[in-house]
């Protein structure tokens, strides 16, 4: 128990140090560790967990960490995970706030930033593919139902390429609203939750 909590703490210290570019970077790191390697979570559980983390107030990374810790080891696991996420940040932040202006133009800092940012972009793209697999290319609401509704002959698509119409609708609407308007995130999430419930009731 204590051992596990200490392991969790250090795992999250590692994630915190590697987490360049915000909380979404945790998604590939966490799936690699807990879904692929240790298999304490399934991909779909992980998806639910991220949804909860996104809807509840607070930074996404912190919410996800608390939740993963809780799933692993209960209350103390949650405590260990969120402490693990914070402690390196406090250490690095306190030293960086003093020295960053002197260091930021050196080649070591610039190179590290350039490299890690490129990697961060690639890993966030990877996180998008993970989430596309869970929301759009899934059969929560099967394509057949959509075809039957409009009396269409739907193409028979191979497994893994079937598209959930509800997923496409909500995902597309979210992207459009985020790019074209200034709808607050909260409203987007509540709206999509309601839309999801309605669509699943309809089909």
């Amino acid at each position: 128990m204590l051992n596990h909590c200490i392991i969790l703490f250090f795992q999250f210290c590692k994630f915190s140090v590697l987490c360049f570019g915000g909380g979404y970077m945790l998604i590939p790191l966490l799936t690699a560790e807990y879904v692929d390697r240790e298999q304490v979570l399934t991909m779909s559980e992980f998806g639910n967990l991220c949804s909860v983390a996104q809807v509840t107030p607070g930074p996404v990374g912190l919410n996800t960490a608390t939740y993963v810790g809780y799933v692993n080891e209960g209350f103390f696991g949650a405590l260990a995970a969120s402490l693990g996420l914070i402690v390196p940040t406090v250490l690095i932040g306190c030293s960086a706030a003093a020295g960053i202006n002197r260091w930021k133009d050196t080649f070591l800092v610039k190179g590290m930033l350039k490299g890690t940012r490129l990697a961060a972009v690639a890993l966030i793209m990877f996180a998008v593919t993970i989430f596309l697999g869970m929301s759009v290319f899934t059969q929560t609401i099967p394509w057949e139902a959509f075809g039957a509704l409009f009396k269409l002959d739907y193409p028979v698509l191979p497994e893994g390429f079937r598209v959930s119409p509800a997923g496409v609708l909500i995902c597309g609407a979210t992207i459009a609203l985020m790019l074209k308007t200034k709808v607050p995130t909260t409203a987007l999430l509540l709206g999509s939750a309601a839309a999801g419930a309605l669509l699943s009731a309809w089909f």
Binding site: G22, Y24, I27, G47, N48, C50, S51, Q54, V55, V121, I124, M125, A127, V128, F131, L132, M134, S135, V136, T138, T140, I141, S164, A166, G167, V168, L169, I170, C171, G172, A173, T174, I175, M178, L179, T185, L188, L189, G191, S192, A193, A194, A195, G196, A197, L198, L199, S200, A201
Partner: peptide, 22 residues
């Protein structure tokens, strides 16, 4: 099924958000 629908909806929205951020 309503609960599943809610989660499916939020997941789809989160996909869009990560995509835009990316």
């Amino acid at each position: 099924r309503y609960l599943l629908g809610v989660f499916a909806g939020i997941r789809a929205a989160v996909t869009g958000m990560i995509l835009v951020t990316g």
